[in-house]
Each structure stands twice: as C-alpha cells, then as structure tokens.
Amino acid sequence: MNILVSIKQVPDTTNIRINPETGTLVREGVPSIVNPYDVHALALASLLKRLYGAHITVITMGPPQAEEALKEAVEFGADRVILLSDRKFAGADTLATSYTLAEAIKYLAQEAPFDLFLFGKQAIDGDTAQVGPGVARRLGVPLITYAVKLEIIDQEKKEVIVHRKTASGVEVLKVTLPVLITCDKEIADPPFSPLPELIKAAQTKPEIFNAQRPIPYKREKLGLKGSPTRVHRVYTPQLKSAGDILFVSEIGVSEAVEKIIAVLKDRGIL
C-alpha cells in the first residue's frame, strides 16, 4: 500500500500568551509541535505499515524549521519526507494551501499512485478543517472527514471500511481506495518508536520542493497572491466586565450556596 500523509507544524496554542500592555501575541518561546490530529494520522499510517506493509510519504508545507516535524514523522516510520518551502508559498489561505499540496501530491503520484491520503481533521492554529477537503477535490478522490476507525476488508480489491463521527452517531462507510481521510484522535494511537527509527530520524534531511523545482507552480495561485481571502482587521477581543468575586473562606459555604441558588431562581432555572 502506498500512503501519503500531510502534516502541519503549528505553534502550541495552549502556550500562547498575550502581552497585556500591547495586546499583541507573545511568540517568543512558544514551542512548535506537529499538529496533534496529524500525529494520529501518522499513527494510522504507521499501524497499517506494521500490519500490511506500506510505503509512507509525508509532506508538509512551511518554513525551513518545519523540517523538525518531518523528522518526527520518520520516527513514526515514514519512508520519504518532503518539505514544501518557499517564500512564495507564504501567506497562503486554505485555497492556496490545498493547491500547493495537491500539485505536490500529483507530482509524487507519477512515480507510484497513492492508495490512501491521510490528514488530521483540523489544525489547532487555524481550526478551519478546510485543507483536507480541498485537496480531495483537487485530486478528485472521495473524502471522508472525522474518521475514527479504518479497517481493510479486502486487500486485493482495496476495499476499506471507515467509521466516521457525525453529530448523531457513527457512520460505517465502505469505499474502494483511493480515498482521502481526515483523522480524529481515536483513529490510532502513536506507537513507541523503535531505536533504529529514532536514529534514522535524527539523520534525516528532507527533500525540499520550492516554487520552481521540481514542480513549476503557477505563481498566481500561490501564497498571498493565490488567496481569495484577506485579513481586514485584527484585534484583541474585549472582555466583558466581571461581577462580584467572593471568598468562600470569608462568606462561608452556606452563603456561597445561597448565592448560587439565588441566581438559578432569578434566571428561571429553579
């Protein structure tokens, strides 16, 4: 099986702080991580490789330091890792991003077509969940989002069953490969990496694709230029004003309880 995984390096948003004086983001010291949902996509690729044997190609688009994310992918058993990196890619919205990724995937598929395309269900920095669906459209392959389980039921006919989470339950879907799947956390747990893979990861130098080589990208479809959306304005959200703050140690538990009951009655809950 030939698997392609697309990952993204993101700032760990749980660690983002706002400078209270300037109201701007403090970026210094914010660690970069592989987007958590992409880690589960990698884990699924790794599991399928162990069960059935597979060749795993991992791509990411980002600045040169996104190389670190690809090294992590090698720890998961990636056989080939590619960094799409060029200043011309910068400032891309989801439409330009899906173009950039899809063109690279089409190029790589010339060597050997892919059976399975794995994405995380969304990236935690943008939370758009739009790039996976966009790439599926551009490749013309069926899309299954929010996947929580994948089983291969017929290796020869390339038939798979995918469980997909919806608002009201879990859909059990049957599809013949190729398919593009966006993965939720339940799809697979990250394995412990064997030592040889850790060593291999440390020594990995990813292949770099830029805007000219090996793919002559259409300039007007890349980066900021190729992005229909524009940031109009950015601002820090205003906090609504706070009410009373009372210390239970001072007012006592029973008064605290009474205060809550009073609110519930006032608001028509009780």
Binding site: L239, K240, A242, G243, D244, I245, L246, F247, V248, S249, V253, S254, A256, V257, E258, K259, I260, I261, V263, L264, L270
Partner: peptide, 28 residues
C-alpha cells in the same frame, strides 16, 4: 475565569457542590 464571571466564588468546588446539590433537591 473571574475576569468574566458575573458571580465568582474563590473556594473548593468539592466543598460547595454537595451542599448545593442538597439545597437544589430541597427546592425541587
């Protein structure tokens, strides 16, 4: 959270919750 709370109570939730549940049961 206290910066946006309309009613903020500084204390242990495990101290407040059981008597609150009892009080609501009584009300009900």
């Amino acid at each position: 959270i206290f910066r946006i709370a309309d009613l903020g109570l500084v204390g242990d939730l495990y101290q407040i919750l059981p008597p609150l549940i009892e009080a609501i049961k009584k009300e009900r």
